[in-house]
Design a protein around this nucleic acid. Structure first.
Lengths: 351, 351
DNA sequence: TTGTATGCGTTATCAA
DNA sequence: TTGATAACGCATACAA
């Protein structure tokens, strides 16, 4: 019979970690003194302090942050609510948020919702139960907007990347979606395109709407809109459907994000069309794969990292100092990356 | 003078949230009864319960999870320590971890270390201060290994993706790195390659070492090894240096991860070499960009999501039930994805 | 069916 | 320079 493989297990359950009382008793002082030795909040006799510190080391005492938080009324932890961490855009955003949080000694709870309303609600519950001091909210599912609205009146919440329809007075950091759409519109127009297919995101998400608006205005030509859901599959499906029905009579496609652009690219390739010779394609986000794709995707670079970092820094400035940040709204600049997937319009052919 | 823009701010700081005492007082019962109405831990008169519930709603009472955690001795939160969330491999892993945690009602704190030892230490401090119930540890910086070892004797820690040299008896979920290297070795050998350049990761990371070992054994031919750091820049630099000095006398490059493979690809392209006509390139990980690159990258698919999910599930089984999981080690299968970046060896040319 | 008293581990207040 | 006590907000053992 083999020996118990996990001494780990036993130790965890059996040995109770040392508390401040244990240290105080062993050092022959009061818990108050121990606390002050560790915090430096008031002077302690050097001799006493040394004795306490030695006991702390011997017992391996580490203050229970939970008790500290209960006493202090805050946990030094915030949440980051996003739909999908495996989307590189949100991963970059998360990195910025984590950096900003770490800079101020805050922890960050990853709230990945997959656009699921129940999941989002559960995570928002963490702020109501005051387990987190605040929440950076990036693009949730529309159904929870009402609940969000109620929360924003009571708890610190900052919006990142995505405006929420009808919500105002909020802290918000977002890329300039409208300008991004405009840049693509101008670019395609300059290339001689006059008829374009626009793959939008869900109407409820303002970022996608803004991109579409900026595009339509700047492009000037004829634009057919199809509503997608920001997933690769929907970009594929929308374009494939149009091709099947022979209804793709345009020379350019603008997808409201790169994933849908990739879907479109696949559908076009399967139909035997060449990008950009037969048709141009542009995306939005500039995820890592965009520059590595074949052809490299013309797209709008979003400062995802900065969006996450800025929104979080704003939130924390508010959380830590109880201050209203100097600017409640940050609109971060975007940049058009012209790559190989767009080219001058060719004569329209029947398909 | 504009009105105070943030009523939010005032409410947060002024109104103290209702406590269980407030509810008890308003409902004319004891805090104990309120507690039991909400927890269902003991029967309560239906009439009384209804009254309590109504007060709970009116006051918007939500139990402070902090106090609950202090009493219960656990927070229902664990940590996920990774080097870089913007690497899609770790993003996928994080998604799996988050899913597993969410399934069991646990929160997940994102500990992004950038391979920084201080940052890692700070995050490991969260487990010592018992703010988190456990930690999923994926590939940290070698310097902290000793500290990790000490922690594993006292706190629940599961290793994901990366073994840690000299650590044993641990919960661990990892991809079969050695088999992955072997698959690439066999593949290149079958294509007629006999001389290969191997870009490894840091020697301290066993995953990279295992990949290299599997490769070298299965390949059989001559292998030149160069040590990189898993970053795109090092893949570029290593290959560029060899090219500069005319020392790249091989027909294939195997990079221990996709990022370095991309760096190599760039260096080769800049040198006017064609992949795979002049030289074959293979990677490891199968990050999203791999299939979209030009040419599409032959690589080893790692089940990143499953690695994260499995490691987390193991950890939580241990954390929640105090049980030793049935298997302490999970080695997950990998899969070779043959794409366009590898081809039959061509006659060796002088470069 | 309900209430009282105690403890979780810390820090702040007040007193010495 | 130090300590006793209360308080943070909850859950539970024990008592009624």
């Amino acid at each position: 019979m083999p020996p118990e493989p996990y001494t780990v297990g036993r130790q965890v359950s059996v040995r109770r970690p040392a508390s401040i009382k244990d240290v105080a008793a062993a050092a022959g002082v009061s818990p108050t003194t121990v606390s002050h030795v560790l915090s430096g909040n008031r002077p302690v006799n050097e001799h006493t302090a040394a004795r306490v510190r030695s006991v702390v080391n011997r017992l391996g005492y580490v203050p229970a942050s939970l008790a500290r938080s209960l006493q202090a009324g805050s946990t030094s932890v915030i949440g980051l609510l996003i739909p999908d961490i495996s989307n590189t855009f949100f991963a970059e955003l998360a990195k910025g948020a984590e950096d900003a949080a770490h800079d101020l000694g805050y922890g960050l709870i990853l709230c990945n919702t997959e656009f699921d309303a129940d999941r989002e609600d559960r995570y928002l519950g963490m702020i109501r139960s005051r387990f987190i001091d605040g929440m950076v909210y990036a693009s949730g599912s529309p159904p929870s907007r009402r609940r969000l609205e109620a929360l924003m009146g009571k708890f610190p919440i900052a919006l990142a990347d995505e405006e929420v329809e009808g919500l105002q007075g909020a802290l918000i950091a977002t890329a300039d979606h409208e300008a991004g759409g405009r840049l693509v519109g101008e670019h395609l127009r300059a290339l001689g395109h006059r008829r374009a297919l626009m793959l939008t995101g869900p109407r409820a998400l303002k970022s996608g709407v803004a991109r579409a608006q900026g595009f339509v205005r700047a492009f000037g030509g004829e634009v057919v809109e199809r509503v997608g859901d920001f997933k690769e599959s929907s970009g594929y499906r929308l374009v494939a459907d149009l091709l099947d029905r022979g209804g793709l009579d345009c020379t350019a496609v603008f997808a409201a994000n790169d994933l849908m652009a990739f879907g479109a690219l696949t559908a076009l390739r399967e139909a035997g069309l060449s990008v950009p010779d037969d048709i141009s394609v542009a995306g939005f986000d500039d995820i890592r794969a965009a520059s590595l794709a074949h052809p490299p995707l013309t797209t709008v670079h979003q400062p995802a990292y900065d969006v996450g970092r800025t929104a979080t820094a704003q939130l924390l400035q508010y959380v830590t100092r109880g201050e209203v940040p100097p600017a409640s709204r940050h609109t971060l600049p975007v940049e058009l990356k012209v790559r190989g997937s767009t080219a001058p319009a060719t004569a329209l052919r029947h398909r």
